[in-house]
């Protein structure tokens, strides 16, 4: 007598400090297949306390990520691309399940996402050369300007492309040495969770990337007002721009808001230009 095998379903969880916890609130919310009524998954619905934990993890991870050489950061981001390649079919399936994309469109999105990691990985040890300067001054000093990360950056993934919209938003912040807390697409969050499984096996130090799934309306105010968040990339959250900018004023967060999807300016938008004076001859 043979029994029919029951599929082992995946629990989609959060990604905080290198671990995969459920929401501390115990909540989850339903995701539907291609805008139909067919249930696709029940990812975790992060609470403000999960967000607080994620920010704490990102803050503690700053020193590890910032003190890594830019060459090393580059290798690690490239490693993400390598690991994604091995999961290609899973990413394609999830994009097709969450959007109305055909197989070839989904495959194109995955390829572009992987290539984008490679492109941004290359920028790690070049951005300082491009935007830094040895400034001419009137006196016996060297005067250098070099870009430095702002710190912890809150990232809003673009809602339409579940995978590419996420990579486009988070990669530039990481290149400069920031650590990130990412709010995944609310209605299409599955690719973000699968990407976090890739990140967990790509030598990215724990806490450098934290990914939350849940309701934007619930999480956005807490992320925008959090005093330990130093910058925000709101390119993927156009509809709440005014609210976010208002809440971000208390500690003068750096705001990046782009319509162009790919540009080294996105890296620089989340960096501070630091100037150093040094006497000549010592």
């Amino acid at each position: 007598m043979s029994q029919e095998r029951i599929d082992v379903k995946k629990t989609y969880k959060l990604f905080i400090n290198g671990a995969f916890p459920r929401s501390e609130s115990g909540r989850s919310y339903p995701i539907f297949r291609k805008a139909s009524k067919v249930l696709l998954a029940q990812p975790a619905q992060a609470s403000r306390k999960d967000l607080r934990d994620a920010v704490r993890a990102a803050r503690e991870a700053r020193s590890k990520w910032q003190s890594a050489t830019s060459y090393n950061r580059s290798q690690i981001l490239y490693r993400i691309a390598e690991m994604m390649e091995g999961r290609r079919s899973q990413f394609v399936e999830e994009i097709m399940a969450q959007t109305s994309a055909t197989k070839s469109v989904a495959e194109k999105e995955v390829s572009e996402s992987i290539d984008l990691w490679v492109w941004y990985a290359g920028w790690c040890d070049k951005i300082g050369q491009i935007s830094g300067a040895n400034n001419p001054i009137n006196g016996p000093f060297y005067n250098f300007t070099s870009p430095e990360p702002v710190g912890v950056v809150g990232v809003f993934a673009e809602p339409d492309f579940p995978l590419l919209g996420l990579v486009r938003a988070m990669a530039p912040a990481l290149v400069g040495g920031n650590t990130v807390v990412v709010l995944a697409s609310e209605k299409r969050p599955l690719s973000a969770i699968t990407l976090s499984e890739v990140i967990a096996t790509s030598d990215v130090p724990a806490g450098v990337i934290n990914i939350l799934t849940g309701l934007r309306s619930e999480l956005t105010p807490w992320l925008a007002s959090h005093m330990e968040v130093d910058g925000l990339d709101i390119s993927g959250e156009k509809s709440r721009s005014a609210e976010i900018r208002t809440l971000a004023t208390e500690n003068l967060k750096r705001i990046a808001d782009f319509n162009t999807s790919i540009s080294p300016n996105r890296i620089l938008a989340l960096m501070d230009q630091k100037t150093i004076w040094h006497p000549i001859g010592l």
């Binding site: 607080r52 920010v55 807490w222 007002s225 959090h226 005093m227 330990e228 809440l247 208390e250 500690n251």
Partner: peptide
């Protein structure tokens, strides 16, 4: 204050 605080303060 109603928002999360920072250890900078």
């Amino acid at each position: 204050d109603g928002y999360y605080a920072s250890s900078n303060y």
